[in-house]
């Protein structure tokens, strides 16, 4: 019983952690690659083009 309970807790935590990391990744891609604020756009311009992101 105890083992099962522990496994469940660990799985849940692991899922939370994975979700958190995935959201960080998508957030980073969005900010660095897609947000159209002028400063960000100008700074990332060449990389956005070279990476094939939609740019301006």
């Amino acid at each position: 019983m105890n083992t099962i309970a522990q496994t469940r807790v660990q799985e849940k935590t692991s899922l939370m952690t994975l979700l958190a990391v995935a959201i960080m990744g998508v957030g980073l891609i969005t900010v660095a690659g897609h947000v159209q604020a002028t400063t960000l756009h100008d700074a990332a311009h060449d990389v956005r083009h070279a990476t094939g992101f939609p740019c301006h």
């Binding site: 960080m24 990744g25 980073l28 891609i29 900010v31």
Partner: peptide
């Protein structure tokens, strides 16, 4: 920005 974008890819 190249490093940032690839870190984003890596996290996902």
């Amino acid at each position: 920005f190249s490093a940032l974008i690839y870190v984003g890819y890596a996290l996902f």
